[in-house]
Every structure is written in structure tokens, then in C-alpha cells.
Amino acid sequence: MKSILLNARGARRRVWLSRIAIAAAGMLTLTLPALSNAADADTVHIEHFTFSPATLTVRAGTRVTWTNRDDEPHTVTSSGNPRAFASGALDTDGTFAFTFDKPGTYPYYCAIHPHMTGVIVVK
């Protein structure tokens, strides 16, 4: 009789633990997209002839990466004089990265399509 009670308790405990494991896996699944969005916090996408986001605010020391998702080449060219950065032409899926060490406002544009503009604000 005692072994039957112990087996029943063990079975209930296994069911309870499996439910906790399923709940934890579900929470992890919901959390992973948020973590991947955090990785995108320092990324600018070039698509549909725009920089997205058009204005990005980062902390000093942040490395910002631009990725061209258009079928046309684009550049990431600092508007400042002297130029703080210039990527050269980026083909589809091409990337350019620059580390912003000093606080300030850094406007930029595409030298091929000058109507495309963006700003990096460094705090």
C-alpha cells in the first residue's frame, strides 16, 4: 500500500515538473524575439530608398551597422565636413559599420540618392 502511495506521489510530481518545463519553454519562446530586437537596436536598414530608422539614438562607443536590403546600391555618407564616415557603394545585403565614440549629432545621406537622409544622435 505504501509503495502505491509513493508511486502516485511520484507520478503527480513528474506531471507538475513537466508542466513547469512546458511553461518555461513557452516563456523563453516569447522572450527570444525581444532579445533579437535588442540586437537590432544598433542597426539601420536600407530599404525602399529610405534609412530605417531615419533617426537612431545611441550611447557613445556604440557600433552602428547599416544593411542594404534594396536591389540598388546605396552609400552611407557623413554630411559633416570633414566626413566622419563614408561607406562606398553597398550592394544588396552589403553592410557598413561605424563606431560613434563622441557625443553629437551625425547627419548622413546616400551619395547615389541624395534624397535619402538619416541622423545618428550620440549621447
Rank of each mutant, 00 (worst) to 15 (best):
I46S: 09
N81R: 13
E72Y: 15
E47G: 13
G80W: 06
R59L: 14
P82A: 12
T67K: 10
T65N: 08
S52T: 10
T55F: 01
T65Q: 10
S52C: 03
V76M: 02
A54Q: 10
H48L: 10
R83I: 04
P73A: 06
N68T: 11
V76D: 00
A54W: 01
G80L: 09
V76I: 04
A54M: 13
T75F: 00
N81V: 09
S79H: 03
T77F: 00
V64W: 05
T55V: 15
R63C: 11
T67Y: 05
R63W: 04
S79A: 09
R59E: 15
V58S: 03
E47K: 13
T55C: 01
A84P: 07
S52D: 10
T57S: 12
D70G: 07
L56W: 00
T67N: 13
T62P: 07
G61V: 08
A60F: 09
T62D: 10
R69L: 12
E47Y: 15
V64E: 07
H48P: 07
P73Y: 03
H74C: 01
T65G: 12
T75R: 01
H48E: 13
R83Q: 12
D71A: 13
F51P: 03
S52E: 11
N68E: 04
G61Y: 06
V64H: 06
T57N: 08
D70N: 08
F49W: 13
T75D: 01
L56P: 02
P82D: 13
N81C: 02
T67L: 10
D71T: 15
V58A: 02
